[in-house]
């Protein structure tokens, strides 16, 4: 744990920045979305659902913005010399950056979750604290995944603008914003079968493709904790899709597959493995490049 002082410094730097507190404030406004379908499905536990909504859109954007300069920014400013001068391997530097930055973001974001809990308690009544805590923990793990991806890009990129472009163009837009559409197109191109998202085929590969993105896997796992259904869409879309008279473009396993025909790889726990892969694989690739690179 030689990297822990670096992690602590990184956490302090992030936690003291205005950006992360601005993100925490906006998260409350962004996530508090009372919905009739949400209340019908979750009751007072809709408050835990708000935490999941925090993880869609604004949180990934904020985390990526707060992380993409973490290494490349220090290279371009020259301050990386001090870090390289520490008795740390390159792997430890990356670990310290990821762990520290995750902690620095997780603190203020947890405060916003506490505020959401307070608002939910006042407006909707007592909710299940364990369920709420479960969704919070999944969301904090998701933050760690996003930080890992952004720091890895930052470690590989030679210029800040390259890192920014990669974070938005290679991660945020395709994997966090447009993935459901992209995955449907990929499936249609590969199989030659067009997909109507409002009446999807009971195809395991299509469903697994949908949940390969970090946001898809996050939704699968958080929906699992919330107990609303097995899907890579948000809980409110899942609850709407499961209503008998409503059809949405959310791919929900329970609404498409007959009982007993669901492939084992569509179990919600596989979402955890996908998140783990997004945490480890970018880090591993970045470690290889970062270890060989002349930083000064």
């Amino acid at each position: 744990m030689r990297w822990s002082p670096l992690a602590r410094k990184e956490a302090r730097t992030v936690a003291k920045s205005k950006g992360v507190w601005l993100l925490a404030t906006l998260l409350v406004l962004w996530s508090y979305r009372p919905s009739y379908v949400g209340w019908d499905g979750l009751g007072a536990n809709i408050t835990a659902g708000y935490v999941q909504l925090a993880g869609t859109g604004l949180l990934p954007l904020g985390v990526l913005l707060l992380s993409y300069q973490s290494v490349v920014g220090e290279r371009t400013s020259g301050s990386v010399k001090f870090i390289v001068g520490l008795p740390l391997t390159r792997t430890e530097i990356l670990l310290g950056k990821i762990v520290g930055r995750t902690a620095g973001i997780a603190g203020p974001v947890s405060v916003s979750f506490l505020v959401l809990a307070g608002i939910g308690l006042v407006n909707h009544g007592l909710f299940d604290p364990l369920l709420f805590l479960g969704v919070v923990l999944v969301t904090l793990a998701y933050i760690g995944v996003l930080v890992s991806v952004a720091v890895s890009i930052s470690a590989v990129a030679k210029r800040t603008v390259t890192a920014a472009g990669a974070v938005f163009g290679v991660v945020f837009l395709p994997f966090l914003v447009f993935w459901s559409r992209i995955s449907t197109v990929i499936y249609s191109q590969v199989t030659g079968r067009p997909v109507n998202p409002f009446d999807p085929p009971a195809s395991g590969p299509l469903f697994v493709l949908h949940r390969l993105s970090p946001s898809g896997a996050y939704n699968v796992v958080s929906n699992w904790v919330l107990g609303v259904g097995n899907s890579a869409s948000t809980y409110s879309s899942v609850l709407s899709e499961l209503k008998p008279t409503i059809s949405t473009n959310a791919l929900v396993v329970e609404a498409t597959f007959q009982p007993g025909t669901v492939p084992i790889y569509l179990h919600e726990s596989v979402g955890l493995l996908i998140l783990l892969a997004w945490l480890v694989v970018p880090f591993g690739l970045a470690r290889v490049v970062f270890s060989r690179r002349d930083l000064v």
Binding site: L26, L29, L65, L66
Partner: peptide
């Protein structure tokens, strides 16, 4: 972040 945040707020 401020611009994106203000829009979302």
């Amino acid at each position: 972040l401020t611009t994106a945040g203000a829009s979302m707020a």
